[in-house]
Design a protein around this nucleic acid. Structure first.
Length: 723
DNA sequence: TCGAATTCCGTTTTT
DNA sequence: CGGAATTCGA
């Protein structure tokens, strides 16, 4: 079978493009991934050595699948297919002198980085009400993505907040270096710096590949843009593919200009547009296209399909999230009776917490499902605990790991002892473990503490001397550290599940050993650090897939549910203040809709439990942007709602009075209520305030609604009016 | 120092 | 509501 079979002329044009830069602007469902894999196969057929081809994908899962497809097409596996992050880690490890700590560095994930930042804040005695460690982390992350060094950031810091962040950035970076650790952003940061400023490094890597292909180019940030550009500098055979309408990572530093200005960067670039959609029915595509047309910051283009109209997109308003989940379950069963399998079905949501209700209802009903993301496997407490020991074996200077391992399970090393140890380490510029080595002479410690430290010291020594495969080491650590014994005797209600997870960790190490014969514990840990949520997900099982819209990027399902379409949730509060924020949310919705092949259900709830409180919500503005002729409105029970063509409401079932889907207003936070006030609520009607407590955005009002009951509402969300 | 009890606080989205 | 941080008694 030829690589070009069943391809459209535009696809063939992209696949067979010769040398020189090329931009493939590919709409949703236009066969973009297939074009890239086919192009790789084509290049190999044309005699390009496979090891001279580099393909960069967005996730490791996509990388694996792409490699597999190339193998099927031309029986070749020596192509380098990887994500930016994995690739950068490999580049740094292959260049021993590239960074100060050489090639033996540990990769900190977001949680490790956060605890490091917390430690820095503590050390600097910064304790602000207003700035969370996470917000400081985000600012530092953005700075790194923009390639701002500590010095540059310091010189640009204007206000008090920025100057504070600058201090943290400096200390954080120093700690990372001392710990021989890199966070996610550092991987890109260092490689981008080296590619632009270090001649030997650049020369080596820009000659390494003859062809560079980058997928999801619309989601690259500045550092990634530079890395890609320099990697392809020698031959200029760069092929970028993406879709500006699917740019959904602006908050992470992704710069949509990278794709919009590709033609400026490469004036001789060939541009191929793939505008035929092969994935969705006409009705689904119509909904997607009409909604995205509301974005102003956009290149005008229209996708088309030659496929059938298909079923209308079904829109359902439920009273609350519980009913919404039940409605989804009911429609799922309906879909099954018309021939779909569980595995054909996906449920999307904007934020992770929404998965809980859906999960609960599906579980109650006994429907099989899999959640992609949420508390990912490697983020579980017990896993991170054991990983801390493993990381310490690979990199004894990893203080974040040392801090975690030293008293888990508890072995008599409390905060006092730990503080003394840290003082010692800081005074002599030691790592925590180095300070531990001389802990016998540590001043101000009691005999008990010294003994406890000695126990831990010999434990680490014992574990370090153990040799074996990654799986054997993991197993050894779980047992020797006393962790499993501690877990078994603990009162943790999830202890059995946790023990199973630890078993699963050994299994995954064993799988790594099998897959990577020349692997090491370090290799395993690196893989663990860089796996994404979606990488873990394997389709094929006959189960319903639950995931965030972000995680759904690049996937497709015959049946799709997009849930929680409410103002404040989708679009999300934090994005609603700016027009560009709303536009990114709209692109996100566009991504969600275009995942569907045959059947699309969109749902929203009139109220939702948030922070343990019922918070009312209006239908999302995006719902009003959908074309009426492609929509069918349904009750939560699946009955069609006959309504006038121009309707203002989506969610009226119980009450006759319509809730006007007007855009959420801002409510003055100071305008509080008192007991006895008579108020009106858009859903619950008239009521009397029983109690009002809290301040600012956390103000809580308890209201008794005659005939409805007593409700606890958050003033920030509740649209309460004084009567 | 430990662990149970209590309070606090959060939610975008993720490599 | 549910996990993390903090407090407090032993």
């Amino acid at each position: 079978m030829s690589i070009l079979d069943n391809c459209t002329p535009a696809q063939v044009e992209a696949i067979t493009h010769g040398d020189g830069p090329m931009l493939v602007v590919a709409g949703a469902g236009s066969g973009k991934t297939r074009v890239i894999t086919s192009r790789i196969a084509y290049l190999i057929q044309q005699g390009v050595p496979p090891w001279k081809i580099l393909a960069i994908t967005f996730t490791n899962k996509a990388a694996g699948e792409m490699k597999e497809r190339v193998r099927t097409l031309v029986g070749e596996a020596r192509v380098w297919v990887s994500t930016f992050h994995s690739m950068c880690a490999r580049m740094l490890r292959q260049s021993p002198d590239a960074i100060d700590c050489g090639k033996d560095f540990t990769i900190y994930d977001a949680a490790d980085s956060l605890s490091c930042i917390k430690a820095c804040l503590k050390e600097l005695d910064i304790d602000s009400e207003h700035w969370t460690p996470a917000s400081i982390q985000a600012v530092i992350s953005n700075a790194k993505n923009e390639l701002q060094t500590v010095e540059q950031f310091e010189s640009r810091a204007g206000n008090f907040f920025e100057r504070t962040v600058a201090k943290v950035y400096r200390l954080y970076q120093a700690r990372l270096q001392q710990n021989h650790s890199l966070d996610f952003d550092d991987l890109l940061f260092y490689v981008a710096k080296l590619m632009t400023e270090d001649t030997p490094f650049r020369e080596h890597w820009s000659r390494r590949f003859d062809y560079v292909l980058i997928d999801e180019y619309q989601d690259t940030n500045h550092a990634q843009y530079l890395i890609a550009r320099e990697l392809a500098a020698e031959t200029r055979n760069i092929c970028a593919t993406g879709d500006p309408d699917q740019s959904i990572y602006g908050w992470r530093g992704a710069d949509i200009r990278n794709i919009l200005e590709f033609e400026k960067e490469y004036s001789d670039a060939k541009v191929v547009k793939l505008e035929e959609n092969f994935r969705s029915t006409a009705n689904i595509l119509k909904v997607a296209e009409q909604v995205i047309a509301n974005n102003t910051e956009r290149i005008d283009r229209a996708l088309y399909t030659r496929g059938e109209a298909g079923a209308k997109v079904r829109l359902t308003g439920a009273d609350d999230e519980e009913q919404e989940a039940e409605a989804i379950y009911a429609r799922i069963q309906q879909m099954r009776s018309s021939g779909y399998r569980y595995g054909d079905i996906a449920v999307f949501y904007r934020t992770n917490f929404q998965s809980r209700v859906i999960e609960r209802v599906l579980g109650l009903e006994g429907a099989p499902y899999v959640i992609v993301g949420t508390v990912e496997f490697y983020n579980r407490k017990e896993i991170k605990d054991i990983l801390a020991y493993l990381r310490l074996l690979v990199n004894p200077r990893d203080d974040v790991a040392a801090f975690r391992a030293i008293n888990t399970p508890p072995r008599g090393i409390g905060s006092q002892t730990l503080a003394a140890l840290q003082d010692e380490a800081r005074r002599y510029n030691f790592s925590l473990l180095e300070a531990l080595e001389r802990s016998n002479e540590l001043p101000g410690l009691g005999a008990r503490a010294i003994k406890a430290l000695g126990t831990f010291r010999s434990l680490i020594g014992e574990i370090a001397s153990f040799e074996g495969t990654a799986a054997e080491i993991v197993d050894h650590v779980i047992k020797k550290s006393g962790y499993i014994q501690w877990l078994r005797t603990s009162k943790d209600e999830n202890r059995e599940e946790r023990e199973e997870n630890l078993g699963e960790l050994v299994t995954s190490a064993a799988r790594y050993d099998e897959r990577t014969p020349d692997g090491s514990l370090q290799g395993f840990l690196e893989e663990v650090a860089l796996v994404s949520q979606i990488d873990e997900y394997r389709d094929g099982d006959d189960r319903i897939t639950l995931m965030t819209v972000h995680a759904a990027k690049g996937l497709e399902f015959p049946v799709v549910f997009v849930s929680g379409m409410e103002e404040g949730l989708f679009p999300h509060h934090n994005s609603m203040e700016s027009e560009s924020g709303v536009q990114e949310e709209r692109r996100l919705f566009y991504v969600a809709v275009t995942r569907a092949k045959k059947e699309l259900f969109i749902t929203h709830a009139g109220s939702r439990m948030r922070f343990g409180m019922i918070t009312p919500a209006l239908p999302s503005r995006f719902l009003r942007e959908m074309p009426a002729e492609a929509i069918e409105k349904q009750t939560p029970y699946g009955e069609e709602i006959e309504e006038p063509a121009v309707s203002k409401t989506y969610a009226v079932r119980r009450r006759e009075k319509a809730v006007a889907p007007e855009i959420a207003r801002d409510y003055p936070e100071t305008d509080t209520f008192r007991a006895g006030d008579v108020v009106r609520h858009p859903t619950f009607g008239r009521g009397e305030v029983v109690e009002c407590s809290g301040a600012g955005s956390r103000t809580t009002v308890i209201v008794r609604f005659p005939g409805v009951g007593v409700k606890r509402l958050m003033l920030h969300y509740a649209k309460l009016e004084k009567v």
